[in-house]
Every structure is written in structure tokens, then in C-alpha cells.
């Protein structure tokens, strides 16, 4: 019998979720009370901590999604435990990646408005984030509309794999294309040790949040698989229509 919410803490996912919540609060404290106010940008600079942490994790998830696609195609989508794991992890990474992408694309312009006086600039990193976001959306659209059978999954995996070299070329192109883009403010910046504390706290918090979401999403996929298996077992026993 469950005796209370803390019973759930024994559950590894719940533990992860609690750790993530604590880390987010700690990171917020660090951002607002430990890190000093930046001299020229003032309070708006604080958006940077979660913005960059989200962007980094979005990229990590993009790579993860691509690797899952590669593994899925490597196994030729043969039914089996690992295929299901790899496939589910790919979707989970893409869906969480879209959420992080949304965070990046909302906080980015907020920052840009204060720092550069404009909502949107085609600054290379912002552009790159937008492209990753679009590739994630395309991947999810394929999953939704190209069918959830092996063929549809194969196509989506193919896109995830193509996305890896594509991202390299996109990165290269937007870097060169930008020409006289505003200098990326934090290249080698963050000299202040308190700011570094806040930044690493945010990074850790976003790691835990992303991991929790991915694990939860993977769990949904697993439950779906089990539900399908139950229906199939039922269907196997029935004489059929």
C-alpha cells in the first residue's frame, strides 16, 4: 500500500523529478541572489543562465535523436526490445528537444531586445537554434503523419540521421553568412566566479529537468508498447472477426 507521496521517491523517476525540482529552485536562487547584477545589461542578463543551459541541452538531445535514428536504421527496424528502446528514445529526445527549443526561442528574443535593441536578429547561434527547432518539428511531423509503422519510423529516423551532417553545414553557413554579426557576448566571458556558480547550477538543473522529461516520455512509450502487446495477446486468443 502506498502511504504517502514520499513512497514515490523510491521510484527512480520520481527521485529524478524531485532532484530536478530542487536543482531548479537552487539554480533560481543562485541566479537571482548569488550572481551579481551585470554592469551594463542589468537584470535582463539573468535570462542568459537558463537560455544557454536550454540551448546546450537542446543540442545534446538533437545529437541523441540522430544517434537513435542511426541505431534504429542499423537494426533495420527489426522488432525487438532494443529497437523499441531506441525508437522510443528518439521520440522522447525530439519532443523534449522541441520544448527546450521553445524556451530558447522565447528567451533569446527577450534577451536580444534588451542587449541589442531588437527582437530578432539572424545571429548565428539564434539561427542555429531555430533550425534545430524546425528539424525537430519536421521529425515529429513525420512521426505523426508518415504512419507509425516501420516505414514511417524508418523515414523519421532517416531525417534524424540526415540532421546531423545538416546541422554541421547549417552551423558553418550561418557563421559565415552573418558577416558582421554582434559578437557573441559570452565567448570566454563569465569571469565572475559567482556568475559561474549560477551558470553551472542552471546547467545542472536543466540536465536534470531534461533527463526527467526524457525518462517520463520513454516510460509512456514503454507503456504504450505494453498496452499494444496486451491488445495483441487478446487478439491472438480471439478467433478473429
Amino acid at each position: 500500500m502506498r502511504t504517502g507521496w514520499f513512497e514515490d521517491v523510491k521510484n527512480p523517476v520520481a527521485g529524478l523529478a524531485v532532484a530536478a525540482a530542487v536543482a531548479v529552485v537552487a539554480a533560481l536562487v543562485a541566479v537571482f541572489f548569488v550572481a551579481p547584477r551585470e554592469a551594463t545589461l542589468g537584470i535582463s542578463q539573468k535570462i542568459f543562465y537558463f537560455h544557454v543551459a536550454s540551448a546546450i541541452h537542446m543540442m545534446v538531445l538533437f545529437a541523441l535523436c540522430g544517434l537513435c535514428g542511426l541505431a534504429y536504421l542499423g537494426m533495420r527496424g527489426r522488432p525487438g526490445r532494443w529497437t523499441a528502446v531506441v525508437d522510443g528514445l528518439g521520440v522522447a529526445a525530439a519532443e523534449v528537444g522541441v520544448v527546450l527549443g521553445a524556451v530558447v526561442l522565447v528567451t533569446g528574443p527577450l534577451w536580444a531586445r534588451k542587449a541589442w535593441g531588437t527582437w530578432w536578429t539572424w545571429e548565428p547561434r539564434l539561427t542555429l537554434s531555430l533550425m534545430v527547432f524546425l528539424l525537430f518539428l519536421a521529425y515529429l511531423a513525420l512521426r505523426a503523419f508518415a504512419g507509425s509503422d516501420r516505414f514511417g519510423r524508418g523515414v523519421a529516423s532517416g531525417l534524424a540521421v540526415v540532421g546531423l551532417p545538416a546541422l554541421y553545414f547549417i552551423h558553418f553557413a550561418v557563421e559565415r553568412w552573418g558577416g558582421a554579426h554582434p559578437q557573441v557576448v559570452f565567448k570566454g566571458g563569465l569571469q565572475n566566479p559567482d556568475m559561474q556558480v549560477a551558470f553551472y547550477a542552471s546547467l545542472l538543473a536543466m540536465s536534470l529537468v531534461s533527463a526527467t522529461l526524457v525518462v517520463l516520455r520513454l516510460r509512456i512509450e514503454r507503456l504504450k508498447g505494453r498496452l499494444d502487446a496486451l491488445y495483441l495477446a487478446l487478439d491472438r486468443r480471439s478467433p478473429g472477426a
Partner: peptide, 23 residues
Amino acid sequence: AMLMNARMKEVLLPLVTYPVLVP
């Protein structure tokens, strides 16, 4: 080729290829 039999392939094709073709 892959989307030949997909629903809404006319929409999906640009959605999938244009981001890759940005460079």
C-alpha cells in the same frame, strides 16, 4: 521517395527538406 505514400506528402516534403537545404 520515402514519403510517396504518406498522408499530406505535399506539405511534409518541404517541411522536411527545406531546413536541411538552408545551407
